[in-house]
Every structure is written in structure tokens, then in C-alpha cells.
Design a protein around this nucleic acid. Structure first.
Lengths: 215, 215
DNA sequence: TCGGTAAGCTGACGGCATGACAGGACAAGT
DNA sequence: ACTTGTCCTGTCATGCCGTCAGCTTACCGA
């Protein structure tokens, strides 16, 4: 489907063009990490990439458009998050382990991509459907797996039927995302990474199984 | 201490000045609700307030400065969130009720102020200390109360000593804030408000007491 | 009533980002 | 060398930013 990268005016991008395009994306990514979203200007990105603003506009309609592109790249990489949930057992000791690994994987993924993720979060919260969609794409992998896990446990009468699997899964994922997004905040508040994780894992485990974990 | 409102160039604002200032804040608040943060321009705010950009700069150093002002206002109003936690009993039925009311109060507060809150969240996530500080001010009321509640339960051996009260309280509050910020998202994802609340309350209750609630 | 003083507002300006276009540079094939 | 299509940039009109000098308005004491 998207086999060909195209410029704004419809041309097909070749080798060189794709390289420039990628460079622009990388530089934008850097900028997002180092300065507030509101202050990221096309001209700065272009300068940093050693090119001109006009070139930027050849490949992207605007800054948002480019951000979405980066997000799309990241979403692919984020698909691996599913492995943190799918096919895991949530009973006994392995349940606790699963919870710990989920928390761990989530936090490190977020830490690695925090700049773009927080822009996506903003866009989604502001009601932009494109951002919302991509946010779903990243989180859905985990959310859906979690929802299924809960439903499966409900089927075996291990979890209260009153629990709405989707709402619970969504809440857990939202929590992970939020905490991950404010990791630095927690630290400067006196809570260390190492202390954060087990507590999160505890909440995750309970949310899914409805029980305290056996460690 | 801050009995007098001052303009950027040091003058003391009188009746009329304060009115203009407030009008600008109100208009900015409106703008934030209706258009992306990135696109909010000083000139639009000024126009909407029936004044000129120069006037805006008389009262605020920049858009961020004005946002912080709005946030400060809101923080005062948000102090009442403490009542949702302080002096509550977390055992038995009243514990479940407390959890439900906390969730309810939190969600509605967030819904009422979502536009500013999401800007604050962004600023905090980007590492801006001023935004982080105001975010703390709003959330600390709840977080501290929760931390104390947990510690108190730990003192009575009702909660596992392994639990880090601050980390747990912070996680719970972060979750509430995140879910609150994406309420619309949940809805369009097929999860209804009414279904969301009890599941959140469940997680909150467990996080604080370490137990399933008795309803 | 009448200045005097400080508050309040704005027109205007240099500076910079935006976004569009036309045209020049370049690489590849013939 | 010539053609073709990709790739990049100089340039320009437009619009926002942030500041200043200067004008208007309100208040106050004589």
C-alpha cells in the first residue's frame, strides 16, 4: 500500500530524497526532546538538518504532519509491547513475574520515546483524531491483550464478572502511560524508579486478576 | 504578600487594568479549549478580548506566563480535592464509598478544567519546573492525603509494609489524572463513563488498602 | 476647577517564521 | 552531450512576535 514515499506535490521520492526526508525526521525528533513542542519551528529543524525550510515543506505539510510520521515509525516498533502480555499466565508466581515484566517493558519503551509520545498524548487529548488513532495503535496492542487476559480469567470464574474487562485494561494502560510520562517527576519527588516498579506491578496484577500476587 | 497585581513594567494594576487582565485570561482559557495549544496566538487572544497584542504583553510575559496564571487560579479551586481523601475511613463499606467518591470527584474536576490541565501536563512532562510545580500543587493535596492514609493503614498492620506509600499514592493519582484526561477517548473506544468509574474505584481501593472492597 | 501624576491602551516597527513558486543543480540513462 | 525527472533553494508576500514611544483616561490633592 504505502510502498512509495511521496512528496507533498506528488512526486516519488528517490534515494537521495528519502535520505533527506529521514534526516529531517531525525532532527525533528531531536528538537522535540530538547525544546518545548510549542517552540519547535520548521526553520530550526531545517537548519539542523543542513537544509532549507522549503525542503521541509516538500516532504511534510507541517510540523504536525512530520510528527505523525515519526509516530507511525514508532508504532511499528511498539508492536513488540504485545509480547509483554500475550500468552502469559497470570496465576501464581508467573503472574507476578508477568506483571513485573509488563511494567518494566512499558516504562523503558516510554522512556526511550518520551518526546514523541507526549506530543501524541497532547494531540489525542486535544481531540485530534489522527493523533488519537496513532495513540490507539500503540496502546491497543497491550490493551487488547490485557482485555483478553481478563476475559479469559472471567470465563474460568477466576475474576468477578462485574469487572468490565475493557475499562479495566484501559485504566491500567493509561496508568502505565501516565506514570511513564512523568518518571522524572516521580524522581524529583523523592520516589525512586526501583520503588515505583513493584508498586505499579502490584496494581497491575490486582487489576487483572483481582487478587494479591503470590511472590 | 501578593496583594497587588503588577504589570510587566512594574505598574500597579487598578480596577480597569485588573478587569482587562482577567478578560484576557478568560479569553485565553476559551482559546485553549477550542484550538490546539500550539496554535494559540497572542493576537487571537487579544482580538477576542477586544484589545491589542501590546496590551497582552503589558500583563503577561508570554502565553506560557498567562497559562500559569490560569493554572494558579485553578489550583486554588482544586484544593477542595483534598476533601475527597482527608479524614475518610478506608475500611469496610465506607472504604468503597470513599473510593467511588474520590474517582467521581477527580473525574469531574478534570472534565471541568481539561484544557488547562492538559497544557500543564505537557509542560510538566517537558521538564518545565514552573509547570511541574503547579501540577504538584494541584495533585499534592490528593497525593499527600493518600500517602498518609496508606501509611496510617501500614501503622495498624493493615497494609503490607513493602508497599511504598508515596509511590503507590503517586501512581494512583497519575492514573486518575491520565484516565480523566482521556475520558473522551475511552468513550469513543466503547467504554462508557458509568463502566469506567467502578473499575477505577476498584483499583484505587486496592491500591490503598491492598484488599478487595466489601460493597 | 484645575493641573499633576500614574494607569491604561495602542499604532507602528524591525525581526522572524510561514508557505508557495519558479528555476537551477544534479544524477542516470541514452 | 543531451534529455528527463528528481532534488534543492532563493525569493517573496503574508502574518505573528515583542517592544517602545506616545496618546488617552482616571484619580487626587490643592
Amino acid at each position: 500500500m504505502t510502498g512509495q514515499v511521496r512528496t507533498v506535490d506528488g512526486r516519488v521520492a528517490g534515494r537521495r530524497g528519502q535520505a533527506t526526508r529521514q534526516k529531517l525526521l531525525d532532527c525533528l525528533s531531536d528538537m522535540l526532546s530538547s525544546s518545548p513542542y510549542r517552540d519547535v519551528k520548521v526553520i530550526d529543524v531545517a537548519r539542523k538538518a543542513g537544509t532549507s525550510p522549503a525542503t521541509f515543506y516538500q516532504y511534510f505539510p507541517d510540523v504536525e504532519g512530520a510528527v505523525l510520521e515519526i509516530a507511525e515509525e514508532m508504532a511499528k516498533e511498539g508492536a513488540q509491547l504485545t509480547d509483554l502480555v500475550a500468552g502469559r499466565s497470570w496465576v501464581g508466581k508467573s503472574g507476578w513475574q508477568a506483571a513485573e515484566e509488563l511494567v518494566d517493558g512499558f516504562l523503558s519503551f516510554w522512556r526511550k520515546n518520551d518526546a514523541i509520545l507526549r506530543v501524541i498524548d497532547l494531540g489525542a487529548a486535544e481531540g485530534d483524531k489522527r493523533f488519537y488513532k496513532i495513540r490507539m495503535k500503540i496502546l491497543n496492542a497491550v490493551t487488547n491483550s490485557l482485555t483478553e487476559s481478563i476475559q479469559e480469567l472471567q470465563g474460568r470464574n477466576k475474576v468477578d464478572k462485574e469487572v468490565n474487562a475493557a475499562a479495566m485494561a484501559g485504566s491500567i494502560v493509561a496508568m502505565l502511560a501516565a506514570v511513564a510520562g512523568h518518571q522524572k517527576g516521580f524522581q524529583s519527588w523523592g520516589v525512586k524508579q526501583a520503588e515505583l516498579k513493584p508498586n505499579l506491578a502490584l496494581l497491575v496484577h490486582f487489576g487483572i486478576t483481582g487478587k494479591k500476587p503470590t511472590k
